[in-house]
Design a protein around this nucleic acid. Structure first.
Lengths: 144, 144
DNA sequence: TCAATAATAGTAATAGTTACTAATATCAAT
DNA sequence: ATTGATATTAGTAACTATTACTATTATTGA
């Protein structure tokens, strides 16, 4: 039996209002403005709950922590291998993919996930900037 | 400057000879037969190294630890949401996917990854077995 | 209003992975 | 073959992301 909770509603609303793909920790920091006493465990628990209910998406990118998406309409995710950010792209439907795959398989295919990898526009321009600067100064690290 | 190491060769050979998709720990246990003193850190370091060189694939499934694949020829991975195992499937090329995606984007798309999710044949039959047994006995947990 | 129990905050524990360091192995140049 | 530079290692510590635990609080149906 599922009971209402102010915290869960706040987490869902937060995800639906924003257009990025935050980590659990980013949601935590953001929701803390309205719910100062909310705990990180509650955020994780509710993100899992909401993802299992299909109200949000959980994205495992392989680069840093998992990310979450309040938009459940079909679309593709581009993942930047440099900064780890996720960028939404228009859906490009893969026609008959599941049928064709099922034909060579004795399990059940429930769905698929298509992720694009590469370098985002921002990381590209940082690259260019660093390249041109490298004539006059040493390599600049993240930590400064 | 890359230097030869017996350990790295052994890890690569192990992955190329097997047809499953082992975790780092599974590779470690397997390689330990020939290299009893190899350390888990060495396995992780070399798996990352080989993946970056394109000699093996690193698969982040979102279910349990990362998995590795010695077969770099294009093919699709099915991931069982119940047991986490990865099963190879024939390639179903996504024609013009990257071109179409690039058109709406200012970054660089280097590649894509298509993963199918569902329930593998083995987990399906365990389900059926449990269903029919449930008439006579209580639910059997993993831990016994 | 009350009892049952779902959900929480806060914290501890865990899994997977990476970082560190002194010792060892590789390899190009003697 | 010997040497020196340095890549790689084993072993261990540290870290990050996530889950589990527990006493307390909130929700809800009766």
């Amino acid at each position: 039996m599922v009971k209402y909770s102010r915290q869960r509603e706040c987490i869902l609303k937060n995800l639906q209002e924003r257009r990025d793909h935050p980590t659990a920790d980013m949601v935590y920091e953001s929701v803390r403005v309205e719910q100062p006493n909310i705990s990180l465990g509650t955020v994780y628990r509710n993100l899992s709950f909401l993802a299992q209910n299909g109200q949000i998406l959980k994205l495992t990118t392989g680069i840093g922590p998992d990310r979450f998406d309040g938009c459940t309409a079909p679309h593709i995710h581009f993942i930047c291998r440099t900064c780890g950010n996720v960028i939404d792209m228009e859906d490009i439907p893969q026609r008959r993919l599941v049928e064709r795959a099922s034909a060579q398989f004795d399990g059940i295919i429930e769905g698929y996930e298509l992720q694009l990898f590469g370098k985002c526009g921002e990381c590209l321009s940082i690259n260019k900037r660093n390249d041109s600067e490298s004539h006059r100064e040493a390599f600049r690290t993240d930590s400064e």
